[in-house]
Structure formats: structure tokens, C-alpha cells
């Protein structure tokens, strides 16, 4: 094990983002924001009563 792999990596040509990667990023982020909004709304509508 050495850092050679890492040095080699940085000398390689940049791999462009594939459409499926863009989909993965976009869908994940979109779904995450929607779910968070839903959870925040639930949290707001049903606040914890101590």
C-alpha cells in the first residue's frame, strides 16, 4: 500500500460526468430535499408535547 495510486489518479485525464451520474446526483438531491420538507412539515404539525 502506498500513495502511488493517488498520485497516478491525479495524473489521469478527467472523466466527464455521465448522464446516469447526473441523474443519481439530481434525483438524490431532489428526493432528499422533498423528504426533508415533508419531515419538517410533520415536525411542525405534530410538535413534541413534553
Amino acid at each position: 500500500m502506498s500513495t502511488n495510486d493517488l498520485k497516478t489518479e491525479q495524473g489521469n485525464a478527467v472523466e466527464p460526468l455521465l448522464p446516469i451520474e447526473k441523474k443519481l446526483i439530481g434525483y438524490s438531491l431532489g428526493l432528499g430535499i422533498v423528504l426533508l420538507v415533508i419531515l419538517v412539515t410533520i415536525n411542525h404539525l405534530f410538535p413534541l408535547k413534553l
Binding site: 443519481l24 438524490s28 438531491l29 432528499g32 430535499i33 423528504l35 426533508l36
Partner: peptide
């Protein structure tokens, strides 16, 4: 909420 944040938001942005 932690699951949503870590996997869907953090991961996609850092990637």
C-alpha cells in the same frame, strides 16, 4: 431526518 440528510443530500453534493 439524519438518514435523508446523510445519504441523499450530503452524498450527492460531495460526489
Amino acid at each position: 431526518a439524519a438518514i435523508v440528510e446523510a445519504y441523499l443530500i450530503y452524498w450527492s453534493v460531495v460526489y
